[in-house]
């Protein structure tokens, strides 16, 4: 299975997160900022890759690191979908670790993360930095 890597220049108004998903190690990272015209299109590719990883590499631990300094409401809906997908993988027997890093001085971001994780049954390690 191929890695999924998207390094964004983000020179325009909209900001697309960097994606670094390693199929060999199972380490996945989403970083930067996330606000775009149509978040559904961008995140659908990410979620499709994760589904393929789950189907072909179920015995591996999937470690998902989120390091987003800002995401708008359009992205938050898709980030919730992503968490639910990871929860489904865990329910299906895959070892899934989610680490959500954030700036400890940004209380609004902390609230947004807490709101997304509110009723997700899988543990999300919320890590202030």
């Amino acid at each position: 299975m191929e890695n999924l890597i998207k390094v964004q220049k983000n020179e325009g108004f909209f900001k697309y997160p960097n994606v670094n998903f390693d199929a060999t190690s199972g380490d996945c990272e989403l970083s930067g900022e996330s606000f775009m015209e149509d978040s559904k299109i961008y995140y659908t590719e990410i979620i499709s890759w994760l589904h393929e990883f789950h189907e072909t590499e179920k015995s591996k631990t999937l470690t998902f690191n989120i390091k987003l300094s800002y995401f708008n409401t359009s992205s938050s809906k898709m980030l919730y979908e992503l968490l639910k997908v990871l929860q489904d993988f865990s329910d299906d027997g895959q070892d899934v670790v989610i680490n959500w890093h954030y700036d400890s001085s940004d209380s609004e971001l902390e609230d947004d993360i807490a709101d997304l994780c509110f009723d997700v049954s899988i543990d999300v390690n919320q890590i202030p930095e």
Binding site: D38, S39, K40, N72, T73, S74, K77, Y80, D111, D119
Partner: peptide, 29 residues
Amino acid sequence: LRGLKRARIREKTNKAGNGNIGLIKIAII
């Protein structure tokens, strides 16, 4: 408002974009 935002995020919608969560976010900010 945060509770309302959580509910809206979890609503299924076919509409592209923010599913009307933006207005709630504006009120919170």
